[in-house]
Design a protein around this nucleic acid. Structure first.
Length: 500
RNA sequence: GCCCCCAUCGUCUAGAGGCCUAGGACGCCACCCUUUCAAGGUGGAGAUCACCGGUUCGAAUCCGGUUGGGGGCGCCA
């Protein structure tokens, strides 16, 4: 594919701040970014906030922050929510570009490419219902085009506000899609669609075309859900006398049932993943491979490596199911690849304040390969911040017993461990020493090491599953370990009495 | 209903006429390692390349049809 056209490439992402950054929007943004970087083009961020009812600054902030979080940067557009625009085509928020849309709408009206429509929502609904009954395509019947001057005067006298509709010529629209190849539509089937609401606010299909022209966008890369909208845009482009950009429609990200990924069936907000402790590097790597592959068997790539290899021509046509298991796996890979110091830094926001930075750094080697998400760390290190009483309340005497061992035997084992450790000074209280002492104690009693460690783990961490036992003991310190063993012993003797 | 798009293991994918008795990864199963859980190692199950017809000496790869799935048909974006 000749992506290296002579004209400088300009692409854009155009999120709508009607919700937090969506997985699909993030992936589309990523593909635009990768394409722009790959060909040395310019990347523009434009905020599509014409839906004043649903657009909020909070959502704009969420979108911009999370795009930055993913490592995606842009050359033009707002860099900060509510902040100043940067670039020669400012402003980049559609709510601030209304004069341009009004000007272009007037031009369309004057040229006869558009006309006023006084139909009310109820009237339109009635037409649609009628068409549904007749099994016809639901489209505007053009009734306002046939209005007389008297009719118009009548509506205006009634104080009715008119919307503006584009007069769509009945012609075949063809375009060469960057990922799908030749696509053909019959615009006779389209119907005249509204470009400006009765309240004067322009609609998406119209503003997107006006802005793409004014901002010099050369390649429109967007989700497949816009494929059927493209003929509308081309009709608009022709009516306005604009030059036509290249279009590329990337496949949708799907729910497990293969429908378009939605909030109802999947977790779609990037923020939610961020809060659970997914790494942006993993998310980017994962998203990039949803609908594209470099054609090799390598699968771990950083953002700049992706930009180096990315080809729009090798993007798939079929949708891709969002596979959480695969994301989890990738996240684990990225976590394990982090240096301990780096991981400690990233873990900080997910861990209790009570755990000081030095302890975080020390616990990292113990939990690193056990983490799927950064957020999982809290549970793994909880035993360090919980009080001895809290740890003790997490289990009962029965849970301490290995298979085929009763309370008395187990109490003897725990007591033996306790005795073996008691003699150690705080300075000698290191994982290696602790392990060899405990193994010796187990051997003396002829216990299997695994059985012997089980009650110790539960006593020390309050959990049957924990980071490595002796490293955990070392971090906890001599006194707290002994206290927790004593607590366990107490439970065992209390439980042992009635049965003994 | 109409229009458009799509179709390789459960999932993400490699594959651009012979290299494919279809490769990798995730997930799953088994074993090894092992103080739990992980991580790691080894092996395994898993796809008649949706189906049917062509084209060709030869098709997962090209063409047509069928079926299935998805998307779009708003004074939402």
């Amino acid at each position: 594919m000749s992506e290296t056209a002579s004209a400088p490439v300009r692409v854009r992402m155009a999120p709508s701040p009607t919700g937090p950054l969506h997985i699909g929007t993030a992936r589309t943004s990523l593909y635009n970014y990768l394409f722009a970087r790959h060909v040395g083009g310019t990347y523009v961020l434009r905020i599509e906030d014409t839906d004043t009812e649903r657009s909020t600054v909070e959502h704009e902030r969420d979108i911009i922050d999370n795009l930055h979080w993913l490592g995606i940067s842009w050359d033009e557009g707002p860099q900060v929510a509510g902040g100043d625009d940067v670039g020669p085509h400012a402003p980049y928020r559609q709510s601030q570009r209304m004069d341009r849309y009004a000007r272009e709408a007037d031009r369309l009206l004057a040229d006869g490419h558009a006309y006023h429509c006084w139909c009310t929502p109820d009237e339109l609904e009635a037409v649609r219902r009628q068409q549904a009954e007749n099994k016809e395509a639901p489209r505007y019947d053009g009734r306002c085009l046939r209005l007389t001057d008297a009719d118009r005067a009548q509506f205006e006298a009634e104080g009715r506000q008119a919307a503006v509709r584009l007069k769509v010529p009945p012609e075949t629209i063809r375009f060469d899609d960057l990922v799908r190849g030749e696509v053909e539509f019959d615009n006779a089937l389209l119907g005249d669609f509204v470009i400006v609401r009765a309240n004067g606010v322009p609609l998406y299909h119209f503003v997107v075309v006006v802005d793409d022209e004014e901002m010099g966008i050369t390649h429109v890369i967007r989700g497949e859900d816009h494929l059927s909208n493209t003929p509308k845009h081309i009709a608009l482009i022709r009516a306005l006398g604009y030059r036509e950009p290249r279009f590329g429609h990337i496949p949708l990200i799907l729910n497990p049932d293969r429908s378009k990924m939605s909030k109802r069936k999947s977790q779609t907000a990037i923020t939610a993943y961020r809060e659970q402790g997914y790494l942006p590097e993993a998310m980017v790597n994962f998203l990039a491979f949803l609908g594209w592959s470099p054609g090799t068997e390598e699968e771990i790539f950083a953002l700049d490596e992706l930009a180096e290899r990315f080809e729009l021509a090798s993007v798939h046509k079929g949708g891709a199911v969002f596979d959480q298991d695969r994301l989890d796996y990738l996240n684990g890979v990225y976590i394990r690849n982090l240096a301990d110091e780096q991981l400690a830094l990233r873990l900080r926001p997910f861990l209790p304040e009570a755990l000081d930075d030095a302890s975080v750094l020390r616990v990292v080697p113990l939990i690193k390969e056990r983490l799927v998400r950064l957020g999982d760390a809290a549970e793994l290190v909880a035993f360090l911040v919980e009080t001895d009483a809290e740890v003790g309340s997490r289990y009962d005497a029965d849970a301490l017993l290995p298979k085929n061992r009763d309370a008395a035997e187990t109490a003897a084992a725990v007591a033996a461990a306790r005795d073996a450790l008691e003699g150690l000074t705080e300075a000698d209280f290191s994982a290696d020493v602790l392990e060899s002492r405990c193994r010796e104690a187990a051997e003396v009693l002829s216990w299997k090491a695994g059985d012997f460690f089980r009650p110790l783990r539960l006593a020390v961490t309050g959990r049957p599953v924990s980071p490595p036992l002796f490293g955990s003991m070392e971090l906890l310190g001599r006194d707290r370990v002994l206290a927790r063993l004593d607590a366990a012993l107490g439970k065992l003797t209390a439980a042992g009495v009635p049965t003994a």
